[in-house]
Design a protein around this nucleic acid. Structure first.
Lengths: 114, 114
DNA sequence: TTGCTATTTCGCCATTCAGCTAATTAGCCG
DNA sequence: CGGCTAATTAGCTGAATGGCGAAATAGCAA
């Protein structure tokens, strides 16, 4: 699987997006991350593994805790893809729109030349 | 499932992103979309349904053809979420970084006042 | 060592998903 | 009508996913 697909897949879950939002406020342990959701630890642990596979989260060690930290790089890639795509398309759309406008104008002032 | 999750999930497949890219060039029938991939029609049809559920593609009818068209609105939502998140986080990161810089400076010039 | 806490790994189950083939529907044309 | 093409639906598979509880691991503390 390509990087972009893995990133989008990781973002395609509200729980995982909430985890990311929480991590944006600063490091947190797995337990701390689990607390606001009504989810068992193993479940959260699995979500974290998905996020790590996407490179969105990294984990360090402090005694028996494994604090998680946000990593923004893949998010940047995803944002870039989406933005670029959208911009390209809107440009194209604008050009198409202009052409239709033009055609309409020609039709109004002449009818069937061309 | 929420809108954003559905959109991200739809984007989390290279085939579907390729279909969107093709549609950015203009309308296409299901057969035309299927051709460049080595995929059977029903498979492409299923991908299209996922894209439609996400509101990324709309389908009209022309005789026995069902030309597909790109719809950009959900992409905008996804881009916005990602960009906003990233920007927020980078701001926060910059602030944290500045604070660390500050702490380092204080440590250098004094040691343990606080 | 024993015990306590934090976290992961291991199975298990139900659901979803990407792919296929075969069959069905929809619409044209002769 | 009958035949042709386009596309969808139905039904199947294997793989992945999200949830769980139970067991294993890692590290501190007494």
């Amino acid at each position: 699987m390509d990087h972009l697909s893995i990133t989008f897949a990781a973002l395609a879950d509200p729980t995982r997006r909430a985890i990311l939002a929480r991590l944006a406020l600063g490091e947190a342990t797995v337990g701390e991350l689990a607390e606001p959701f009504e989810l068992r630890l193993p479940t959260v642990s699995k979500h974290l593994k998905v996020l790590q596979r996407a490179g969105l989260v990294s984990q360090s060690r402090k005694a028996q805790w494994r604090p998680c930290q946000l990593e923004a790089a893949p998010l940047k890639d995803a944002a870039e893809w989406t933005e670029l795509f959208r911009r390209n398309w809107e440009e194209r759309f604008a050009r198409l729109d202009a052409r239709l406008e033009q055609t309409k104008k020609e039709a109004r002032r002449g009818g069937d030349e061309r």
